[in-house]
Measured scan of single mutants.
Amino acid sequence: VTLFVALYDYEARTEDDLSAHKGEKFQILNSSEGDWWEARSLTTGETGYIPSNYVAPV
C-alpha cells in the first residue's frame, strides 16, 4: 500500500477530482497518469484524482 499525506488543501474542480484537506492520508491507486494521481481517501473512502504535487509520502 502506497500512502501519501496532503500537504495543502485542494478543492475538487471536476467530478473526477477528489478534494483533500491538509494532513489527510491517501492510498495511491494509480500514479501513471502524470501530474494527477488516482487516490482513495483513508478518511472518507472516496476515490478520485488529486494533484501529485499536493501530497508527499508518509
Rank of each mutant, 00 (worst) to 15 (best):
H21I: 12
R13V: 12
T14Q: 10
D17P: 00
V5P: 00
A6R: 00
F26L: 09
I50T: 02
V1M: 13
Y10H: 04
G23H: 03
S32W: 09
S41V: 02
V1D: 12
E46I: 10
Q27C: 13
R40L: 13
F26W: 04
I50V: 05
G48D: 01
S19T: 10
L3E: 08
Q27K: 06
L18K: 00
A56Q: 09
K25V: 15
P57F: 06
I50W: 01
S32P: 10
P57T: 05
G23E: 03
T44H: 02
S32Y: 09
G48Q: 00
S52L: 05
I50N: 02
A56Y: 09
S32K: 10
T47D: 03
A56F: 09
A20M: 15
S32T: 12
T2G: 12
Y8M: 11
P57K: 07
N30C: 12
I50G: 01
P51S: 05
W37I: 07
N53C: 15
N53T: 11
D16N: 15
T14V: 06
R13L: 10
E15Q: 12
V58K: 01
A56K: 09
V58E: 09
I28N: 00
Y10T: 02
E46P: 00
L7S: 02
W36R: 15
Y8W: 13
W37K: 01
E38I: 15
Y49V: 06
E33S: 14
N30Q: 08
E38R: 09
Q27V: 15
Y49R: 14
G48H: 02
T47S: 09
L7P: 00
D17W: 08
I28Y: 02
D35T: 09
A39N: 01
S32H: 11
F26D: 01
G45T: 02
R13C: 14
R40N: 05
Y10N: 01
T2M: 13
A56H: 08
A39E: 03
N53D: 10
A39I: 06
S41I: 03
H21Y: 14
L7Y: 03
Y54S: 13
D35A: 09
Y10C: 07
Y49L: 14
T47F: 06
T44M: 01
E24A: 00
D17S: 13
E24V: 01
H21F: 15
Y54D: 02
T43N: 08
W36D: 04
Y54C: 13
D16M: 14
S32R: 10
P57R: 05
G23Y: 05
G48F: 05
D35M: 10
D17M: 13
T47Y: 08
A12E: 03
F4S: 01
L42P: 03
E24P: 01
A6W: 02
D17Y: 13
Y10D: 01
T43L: 13
R13F: 07
A56W: 09
L3N: 04
E33D: 15
K22H: 05
A39C: 09
V55W: 03
S52F: 08
H21T: 13
E15R: 10
E24T: 03
A39P: 00
D16L: 14
G34E: 12
Y8K: 08
A20D: 00
A12H: 04
S52V: 07
D9G: 04
S52P: 06
V1C: 15
A6E: 02
T14R: 14
H21P: 02
L18F: 04
E15M: 10
T47N: 04
T2K: 11
W37P: 00
L42C: 15
F4A: 09
K22M: 09
L18P: 01
T44V: 01
P51D: 05
G45K: 03
V1W: 14
Y54L: 15
A56C: 12
D35E: 11
F4E: 00
D17T: 14
D16W: 15
A39V: 15
I28E: 00
T47L: 06
T47V: 14
A20G: 03
F26A: 00
Y49W: 15
T43D: 12
Y49I: 08
S52Y: 08
W36C: 12
W36M: 14
L7M: 09
K22V: 13
R40C: 10
D16A: 14
E15D: 12
F4V: 13
E38V: 14
L18Q: 02
Q27Y: 14
K22E: 07
A56P: 02
P51F: 07
V58P: 02
Q27E: 14
E11D: 09
L7W: 03
I28P: 01
P57C: 10
Y10Q: 00
A12Q: 06
Y54H: 09
I50F: 03
D35W: 08
D9W: 05
D16Y: 15
L3A: 05
S52G: 07
Q27G: 02
F26C: 02
E24I: 02
L3F: 11
E46G: 07
L29K: 05
A20K: 00
D9V: 04
D9Q: 05
I28V: 08
Y10R: 04
P51M: 06
W37H: 03
D16P: 03
S41H: 04
E24W: 04
L18R: 00
G48T: 04
K25A: 07
G48V: 04
K22Y: 06
E46A: 13
N30G: 09
A39M: 14
V58Y: 12
Y49C: 11
L18D: 00
E38F: 15
L3S: 07
F4C: 08
F4W: 15
D35P: 09
W36A: 06
E46L: 14
E15Y: 08
A6P: 00
S31E: 10
Y8F: 11
W36K: 14
I28H: 00
E24F: 03
L42V: 10
S32C: 13
G45S: 05
P57D: 04
L18H: 01
N53K: 14
F26E: 01
R13S: 11
Q27F: 14
D16G: 15
A39W: 04
E11V: 14
S32N: 11
S19K: 07
A12K: 09
H21W: 07
S31P: 10
D35N: 08
S31K: 13
E33G: 14
T43F: 09
E38K: 10
T44S: 09
R13T: 11
R13E: 10
S32V: 11
Y54T: 11
T47E: 08
